[in-house]
């Protein structure tokens, strides 16, 4: 009796990809100006073939604005979801996520410091905010986990949540200190704390795509190790997993994923919490299946959240972080009450 196989089959990839593609099309069609699917096809065909656009309005909305935005939303959702899945496996805790642990806030602090004090790394093409966000994400993870292991070696849910809350408060006060030094930049700083993918372009999408490919791929190669950690860290050591190396690889890749996402879209909370949880109910906890499914799931979830943010109060636009946090808070309470029952 084999109820579940280890691998994610080709047909499953295809189904998940088809759903993601369908949601992508929906999100490109619907907006402040609705554009029918046929029109999109024509615009894309003209753009790829270098012909003159027949529908000036549709092409001026689609090509420079809506398509890159939806692309960035999908990639950010996928990246945050993969990062959340990896952390939940590593820490054996279904509530671990960039936002609950305070890693995203830490990354945002890094980005804000870079803006407020005009930090520049001339040698690095994609800018100081990204590098600072990645560095601060990694630093935050080190601080949070260092504290957690010191206080409670078993890393119980309560400890993780408490430390996440306290660290987030610490970061937000640090953020306020930074803001008092740079009142002239308060507008761009609040953007990081709210989270938005408005106005993102193709370079952002490319950066997200490359990051997801490299870090996501590296995490996927550690699926077996993550399974072992999800069963228990001691058990992982007993069956021969190189515990230190695995931890380091996962923590660094997760930091890069979260750092890049935050530097492009600000802190978008709970994506890495909600989607892995839902996807786990569909495909089970085995990371060989869970990771690819969570990647597609995260893209779909964030695209839908962005769609709601754009259209619910049309013509005004909600911040995408508001939508994800609304959903996320409810799911958080649900998972927490479930994990307490055991």
């Amino acid at each position: 009796m084999r109820t579940r196989t280890e691998k994610f089959h080709l047909w499953e990839y295809l189904v998940f990809f088809a759903v993601t593609a369908a949601v992508f099309c929906l999100c490109v069609c619907v907006g402040s100006v609705n554009i029918p699917l046929g029109e999109i096809g024509a615009v894309l065909k003209n753009a790829f073939l270098g012909q003159a656009q027949t529908n000036a309005l549709a092409s001026s909305i689609l090509i420079p604005v809506r398509i890159p935005r939806v692309l960035c939303v999908a990639l950010t959702g996928a990246a945050l979801s993969v990062a959340g899945t990896a952390m939940q496996g590593l820490l054996k805790n279904p509530l671990a996520d960039g936002s609950t642990l305070g890693v995203s806030s830490g990354a945002a602090l890094g980005a804000v410091i870079a803006i407020a004090f005009g930090v520049v790394f001339p040698q690095i093409p994609f800018g100081a905010t990204t590098v600072m966000a990645i560095l601060f994400a990694f630093l935050s993870l080190m601080i949070i986990l260092g504290l957690a292991y010191k206080l409670d070696y078993s890393l119980s849910t309560n400890t993780i949540i408490l430390i996440g809350v306290i660290y987030s408060m610490f970061v937000s006060s640090a953020m306020n200190i930074v803001i008092t030094f740079a009142t002239d930049k308060i507008q761009s700083i609040t953007f990081w704390t709210m989270g938005s993918l408005q106005g993102t372009g193709y370079t952002d999408a490319a950066l997200l795509g490359v990051t997801l490919l490299l870090c996501g791929g590296l995490i996927f190669f550690h699926a077996r190790e993550l399974n072992a950690f999800a069963v228990g860290e001691d058990n992982a050591r007993h069956i021969g997993v190189n515990v230190r190396r695995t931890k380091l690889v996962i923590l660094i890749t997760v930091s890069i994923l979260i750092g890049v996402c935050v530097s492009i879209g600000g802190t978008i909370g709970f994506v890495g919490l909600v989607t892995p949880h839902m996807v786990r109910m569909l495909v089970g906890p085995n990371h060989k299946r869970l990771l690819p499914a969570a990647m597609f799931g995260g893209a779909v979830f964030l695209m839908l959240a962005d769609l709601i943010a754009r259209t619910l109060l049309n013509p005004r636009e909600l911040s995408i972080g508001v939508v994800t946090s609304l959903v996320g808070a409810v799911v958080f309470v649900f998972i927490f009450s479930q994990s307490r029952k055991r």
Binding site: T3, P94, R224, V231, G232, I239, N286
Partner: peptide, 19 residues
């Protein structure tokens, strides 16, 4: 043992072959 997620018996046994 406290397993955090609903792995199957076979999946847990299979981890024994990790090495």
């Amino acid at each position: 043992h406290f397993v955090g997620y609903s792995f199957t018996v076979e999946e847990v046994v299979r981890l024994g072959r990790y090495a």
